[in-house]
C-alpha cells in the first residue's frame, strides 16, 4: 500500500520543499535576468530615440526631395558671387507647376514648415501641418554653379542627416 502511494506521488507531484528550493534558485536567476532585462530596456529606449530621430530626418528629407527633384529652379540659397558655397535655414524654389515654394525652419517651434507663394496674383499660404517636428538644426546648401544641386542637412536630438538632391527639370 505504502509503496503504491509513494510511486504515484513520485510520478505526478512535487513537494513543498522542492518548490521552495526551486523558487529560491529561480529568484536568484530572476534577479540577475531582471537586472539585465532592465538594462536592455534602457538600451532599447535609447536605440528607439535614435531611430525616431533618424525617421524624422528621413521623412522630412524624402518629402522635400520629392518636390525639389522636379522643381524648375532654386531661387534661394544660391552660391555666392565668388562661387563659394552658401547655406541657409530655408530653401526657396520654383516648383514643377511654376509657383514659388519655400521650406523654412521655425526655430522657436523646432519645426520645418512649407509655404506656397503663387507666381502671379494670389495670397501666400502656409501648410497647416509642419513637415517635421523636433528638429534642432536645418541647413540647405547650394554648392554648384548652376544652382541645381541642394544639400539638406538636419539634426534631430543629436542625430544627423545629410542628403543631396539634383533638379532634373529646366
Amino acid at each position: 500500500m505504502y509503496r503504491h502511494y509513494k510511486r504515484k506521488s513520485d510520478r505526478f507531484g512535487v513537494t513543498l520543499v522542492e518548490i521552495i528550493v526551486a523558487s529560491a534558485i529561480l529568484a536568484f536567476i530572476g534577479g540577475i535576468v531582471g537586472h539585465w532585462f532592465f538594462l536592455q530596456r534602457e538600451y532599447q529606449g535609447r536605440i528607439f530615440a535614435i531611430s525616431d530621430a533618424q525617421q524624422t530626418i528621413r521623412q522630412a528629407s524624402w518629402r522635400m526631395m520629392q518636390e525639389l527633384r522636379t522643381a524648375r529652379s532654386v531661387l534661394f540659397p544660391r552660391i555666392n558671387a565668388d562661387k563659394s558655397i552658401r547655406s541657409d535655414s530655408k530653401v526657396v524654389f520654383k516648383s514643377f507647376a511654376g509657383d514659388v515654394i519655400c521650406y523654412y525652419y521655425l526655430a522657436s517651434e523646432k519645426e520645418i514648415r512649407r509655404c506656397k507663394i503663387p507666381n502671379g496674383p494670389g495670397v501666400p499660404t502656409a501648410d497647416s501641418e509642419p513637415v517635421a517636428r523636433n528638429v534642432d538644426q536645418l541647413a540647405f546648401t547650394a554648392s554648384d554653379e548652376g544652382n541645381r544641386i541642394i544639400d539638406i542637412f538636419m539634426e534631430v536630438k543629436g542625430t544627423f542627416g545629410l542628403e543631396s538632391v539634383y533638379l532634373i527639370n529646366e
Binding site: G13, V14, T15, E18, A22, S23, I29
Partner: peptide, 17 residues
Amino acid sequence: NNRRGIAIVMVIGLVAI
C-alpha cells in the same frame, strides 16, 4: 525524487523567464 521535483519547477520557471 527531490531533485527531479526541483528540476521540473526550475524548467517551468526558466521557460517563463
